[in-house]
Design a protein around this nucleic acid. Sequence first.
RNA 1: GCCCCCGUGGCGGAAUCGGUAGACGCGGCAGACUCAAAAUCUGUUGCCUUCACGGGCGUGCUGGUUCAAGUCCGGCCGGGGGCACCA
Length: 850
Amino acid sequence: MARYNAKESETRWQSVWSARETFRAANESALPKSYVLEMFPYPSGRIHMGHARNYTMGDVIARFKRAQGFNVLHPMGWDAFGLPAENAAREKGVHPREWTYANIAAMREELKSLGLAIDWSREFATCDPAYYARQQRLFLDFFRMGLVYRAEADVNWDPVDETVLANEQVIEGRGWRSGALVERRKLSQWFFKITSFADDLLHGLDQLERWPEKVRLMQRNWIGRSEGLRFSFDLTKAPVPSIEVFSTRPDTIFGASFIALSPEHPLTEQLASKDPKLAQFVAECRTGGTAEETIETAEKRGYDTGIKARHPFDANWDLPVYVANFVLMAYGTGAIFGCPAHDQRDLDFARKYRLPVLPVVIPEGTDPKTFAIGDEAYVGPGRLANSRFLDGLDVESAKAEVAKRLEAAGKGQRTVHYRLRDWLVSRQRYWGCPIPVIHCASCGIVPVAVENLPVVLPDDVRFDQPGNPLALHPTWKHTSCPKCGGRATRETDTFDTFVDSSWYFVRFTDSHADDPVNRAAAQYWMPVDQYIGGVEHAVLHLLYARFFTRAMAKAGHLAVQEPFAGLFTQGMVCHETYRAVDGGDWLLPEEVEKRDGGAFQRGTDIPVSVGPSEKMSKSRKNVIAPETIIDAFGADTIRWFMLSDTPPERDIEWTQEGAEGCWRFVQRIYRLITETEDLPPAGTKMPEVTGVDLELRRATHRAIAAVTEDLSALRFNRAVAQIYTLANALGAAGAVSGAVRREALETMVLLIGPMMPHLAETCWEALGHKTLVAMARWPHADPRLVKSDTITIGVQVNGKLRGEIQIPREAEEEIVKSSALALDSVQRALEGKPPRRVIVVPGRIVNVVA
RNA sequence: GCCCCCGUGGCGGAAUCGGUAGACGCGGCAGACUCAAAAUCUGUUGCCUUCACGGGCGUGCUGGUUCAAGUCCGGCCGGGGGCACCA
């Protein structure tokens, strides 16, 4: 019996697709378009199982869409700037450029061996000068539009990677790449004004119906819109006349018992310059920084400045002004009024410094006289009390009343605040896109002239000393000012690599265009119809890309506001972990052998302790290289595994047994096709059929309908199950006519086409076709064959299943009722009593109520 | 602490609208083929009970709505994720 030779078949079809440019996408077509994209990879050198899963899913969609008659764009490129290249340069002495392009070459071959339906003619790497030159052009546009600025700010400094980070890149106080505790530093840095789109980015989420709700929620929380009132307190014994605060609870103004300033507040700094004790307090607050332990202990501390603030509604009511460690300069105005009864932090603070705690919002149905605050602030709804003109109002009305009065008095203004901060984009690293500006002593910051772009990275840099290699380069930064012609220096910071990935999907629409964007091509392809990637980018890449798209639209490059109409976030690939003994060294899966219900080190009797399934990682050694699976079983097996069993959004566990099962199915399909004798030639007309023929035809068309529906909804695991069901039906079918068997087999091949494309081509050829499955149209389900004429429905007595009946699909209710009641099991359950009621749900169930 | 999601056989999971729970796969068991093994094929596989027919139980726990609940509602328990002094 001939076995399917995956290796030979896969190499062969890959070269056929390549030679015929099967997957090359045209930028104009009479067909409807579909842009399918997976998040492009960082060229680490090797593809891992996560890549295999991600790109398989995208490939299935791309091939499915193509079969359904869409003009499909499915490109690939490389997110190629970034620190690993510099680290490799330091460790191995290889230039980041060489290292990166060698990795790209290796990974390209591995990706190609997966048989992806990609238009490789559009490939580029973000470190290609041709790409980053256009990015610099976009920067100049943004600069002109006022979307870029340079400012001194408290920023996150990663001491290991020796660069600053954006807020989104600090996870639990640590750098997203290095894992190092982030320090706060005051530095002059470049920012993109993402906050000017805050409201738009927030509201745009409502329209993204094909995004996971989870991601939209994470972005909503990250943008963090809150409505409140900004108003001022007059000060006495102070160097400034008043202090402005922001509050979302102005209704609690009569419960105020103190004012608190951030340690970084300008007034604090002014006071500290004359008050050494305060200066020391501020210094103590600063040392804590964002370090983990400080946040966890989170003790509220304050310093009484001696200044008094006058209550805005009572000239005789003075509040103490503190500097407090829990007030953030970066949010609101950097100053608050504290209302201990209705804010937990304020309450902790007030208890410590023995400040009054006066409840002013009383829960409905509670007596204001007996309502007291213990250790917990009351933050729920209720009616105002102890609040003069606000007494009796609900919280919302009271907020409005306070706002109205303070606005009328010219002391306050309703405002909206966002948690979102501007995107810090400068990095003190070499291997990134140079920021195209020049610093001139007399003209200040001057953008590089368009005709002088690109600002190209120098090749001759040294990595044998700490710091930014660009800044340390002896000559590169020296240039002349475009404005005055005098001596000037180049900016030595480069862009955050998230800038590179914020518009690559637009560049794919015409990756050879002279302008950053070929408007016509972008107009045709954008937005991406289906984007696929990891959920870890929910508030990083996916937020930045939404901002960039808006900024590019504003600059006239694009007509769309949202880059990704559909988003899918796939789960991770996991594997069991192995250790030599409990707590011992980690072992690679290939070092472990399973037999007799136990696990042992390969070739020995030394037992291995098996740990839980975790995300594949080098540190746990629980990795399987896709390459080894492709070598052993072929790409179709790994693809089939990635689509089977586990829903795509969940984590999938890689198992050897599962992979072998997939391989067996590949062989089974091949046998089903090649061991069938006496098939009529392709294109034979289907006769009218009955009996077993009709049953197989029904199974075939039910499979078409089900797989079509499941693939459309990205339910790959269910589509896989439907194909198994069809294979089972084919295997079980007895003496069916040749035409019927051919239809079933051809359908099977077309249905697996997007998932196991090489096997499909081989089978298609074996069935006598001269065409490619990759070019074939998706099969059409005949609705008359999808639904059968007779159906089986359950019969319940008092909600308990007692039997089932077979009835014509369109049977009259009375007939259904009587055949249900005629069942022995029903009569037994009724114990001779007449039924009180019989509920017939057509096509579903009969329930007899006794 | 706040917000969100998820709990179904030995395992991954299916059940789209409240209507026959466990499709499909993995694993297990039994058999066929074989000198034997691999491969392949067939049957079987939620739990308890029964010689059998059958009966009982069953979707984390608990209460409710309904003719009918894995699905809807309330309370709890467990797991995962996001944010974390955001005023």
